[in-house]
Amino acid sequence: MGYQIKEEKVFNSGHAACPGCSEALAIRYVVNTLGPDTIGVVPPSCIAIISGPQPLSSMRMPVYQTTLESSAASATGIARALKAKGNDHTKVVVMAGDGGTYDIGFQSLSSAAERNEDFIYVCLDNEGYMNTGAQKSSSTPHLAYTASTPAGKLTPKKNLAEIMVAHRIPYVATATTGYPDDLARKVAKAKEMKGLRFILVLAPCLDGWGLADNAGPKVSRLAVETGVFPLYEVENGERYTLNYGSKGTPVVQYLSLQKRYRHLSQAQVEELQAEANLNWQRLQGKLS
């Protein structure tokens, strides 16, 4: 898309993520795009570990670590207090995992979206509860192995992007770390808007997905090229724009890099291919 990434150095090296972690990369583009006049909200998750243990911090901005289910409510408290103080320049950003967003934190997120609170919510989606040892969340995809779904998850991944679109908030976008310029552009766009802005970032997890240390970017790109995780944005619940979608790459190329899928039969691989095709078709129906 030819977007020039502009970074202010808010995120620093020396944090505690696994070497090669995509979440750390995503956080870099989020906070370096937002800049230092930002207050972060982080629930328990790998992001909390990456933020740093007291008295250290990997980010040159205030970060409030909240409880697992409270991110959106905590961000609301900050946003309202800033408003009460007449501060209209400081940004508020949540950086939460999929468990803290799709599951236990969904109630407060949905409510904040309905009230159209003024903050940016970034969900770093690694498709499982990684901090507690890689159990399933409602973001875990169909048939993926996790510690709590040893035979593979029986139900599909919840489509959170569409659920957020249904709240008709100003901005919903999907992004992933294999497309850093697209991610940074979306954060920059969200930064200039008001109201609740939601960005869902697919962030491959080395440990939880069973990836080689250097496989994060490749898996991330394959998720898009196979049509498993298309990149798009939706404004005001209506205006869809596709940024990057399926190139017709077979889903098996995406699956075969991940140990969480190594138990799949040929028939199951075909089932996942059919599901990806269907989801891709459905999305295209919304684009026109």
């Binding site: 009460a84 949905s110 409510s111």
Partner: peptide, 27 residues
């Protein structure tokens, strides 16, 4: 003159009280 937040639960109401207070306003 007050920011009234109609939370979806008391849990969220208290969560917002904490951060608003930490941002430096009376709640």
């Amino acid at each position: 003159v007050v920011e009234l937040m109609t939370a979806e639960s008391e849990h969220s109401a208290m969560s917002a009280c904490i951060t608003a207070s930490l941002t430096g306003v009376r709640v």
